[in-house]
Write a protein that binds this DNA or RNA. Structure first.
Lengths: 233, 233
DNA sequence: CAGATTATTATGTACGCACATAAAAACATT
DNA sequence: AATGTTTTTATGTGCGTACATAATAATCTG
């Protein structure tokens, strides 16, 4: 067993991962350069490059020109969460999806919302509150503000049968977005909608999307108690 | 303005993103194949491939051999969360990090823990409970079970000054892991350690790592109320 | 010796070609 | 018309070369 020969970048990646995980290459270590590895693995440098780049993207290697490649001393575990459309999320768990709009109104938002969306304080926005259900039990409560200057079409949409969640994906272009996760206590209204006790610990996702420098929409999703997001490392 | 010429994969990527976001290519649309795009952009097919691959990884394109490349109908927003070592996380927010071990014990874990870690029900594990502080206020509460069969060195370590969080990264190899996020209500003990009200909504991260088919460690991090994880799309 | 200049070196990436592979489409067969 | 086979096609990937770029090391200069 001299040179096992790795003919594709995935197998090179696997070998690199193996060496990192079994501590052949320890955290902080400088690993051989691409040319040397290519020779050792019996493949082209570009193949090694592809593999190392992938591992570096995963956060397990730090690469710097000239300085070389070293094993990340503190591997920043990058958990990639897939935030899908809620209907799909529910259906993927093999449960029946349904949707109920609670309220729809054009009104002036609270100050924290207009501040976050950078709209003038007195500007009217479209507010939609709706419930997503799985097997007819509350799954997530959506509270959304829509900037109708950016998405005028939303004014014609009742959001009675299709959720704003899905409608916006189809109709509203955006260039940037931010997302945050937190835990919040259920307010009276939240608890009523989700059918849980007031003050329950709820998993919350807040999303804010931008089209260039104009905010498109701001949404908070509150999930029913017990909800968890999982991912593999 | 005929052929602007894109000479690197990033500029090709930018142009592709622009076309998706401005709806030149609408959700569900089949886009031109790599060879045609290469000709249009005045670059090699491999350059186009690199760009499209990157966009596809970001979840905005769906690619299939022979079938071609189409704009994702429902872009799965992939939020990449960087789960760093807590000390670094605190220090990056420009706050002073400190650490306090609360308990350390060798004992038999509750059934849900031994089940999740797939250890025999009566097996003794090492339990470490500790508090991470930022500017001397509680930041996160760590409750950890360590499989000493896999990491015997942990038995010699008091975890008095260095957190298990960091120690294990340096000393315990692992091959797989899973992570999950949720919201939980603070128990009496949690509330006392974190200095918050009992029943407060806390953001929780649960991590379970494996070395091949043996569990290495299981940890729950409970963050002080108000904590949020943010990322950009 | 400090500071500026020049080499050196490892990664980053472009290109063109070749072939592999999956999946759709076309075709043939019963 | 249902089934199986072949062709076609777009993506996936490997290779070798060339050059770009950033960061370090070596050298020169006042």
């Amino acid at each position: 067993m001299n040179s096992p020969v790795f003919r594709n970048w995935q197998s090179v990646q696997d070998e690199v991962l193996r060496r990192i995980r079994t501590r052949v290459w320890k955290p902080g270590d400088l690993i051989p350069n691409e040319a040397d590895l290519a020779e050792e693995f019996g493949c082209a440098r570009s193949t090694v490059n592809r593999a190392l780049r992938a591992v570096a993207e995963a956060g397990l290697l730090d690469r710097k020109r000239k300085a070389g490649t070293r094993v990340a001393a503190q591997p920043v575990a990058k958990a990639t969460l897939s935030i899908a459309v809620i209907r799909r999320e529910v259906e993927e768990r093999c449960r029946k999806y349904s949707y109920q709009r609670i309220t729809r109104a054009e009104c002036v938002p609270p100050l924290d919302v207009s501040a976050a969306m950078r709209t003038p304080a007195a500007t009217t926005l479209l507010y939609v509150r709706a419930l997503h259900l799985a097997d007819d039990t509350p799954y997530a409560l959506e509270s959304r503000w829509i900037n109708t200057d950016v998405v005028p079409g939303a004014l014609q949409e009742p959001f009675q049968d299709i959720s704003a969640n899905e409608w916006l994906l189809q109709h509203a272009p955006y260039t940037d977005g931010e997302i945050s996760f937190s835990a919040v206590a259920a307010s009276t209204g939240d608890a009523q909608a989700l059918g849980c006790a007031e003050g329950s610990a709820l998993f919350a996702i807040d999303r804010l999307t931008w089209d260039a420098d104009r905010s498109v929409t701001k949404v908070r999703l509150l999930f029913a108690p017990g909800h968890q997001m999982r991912t593999v490392l």
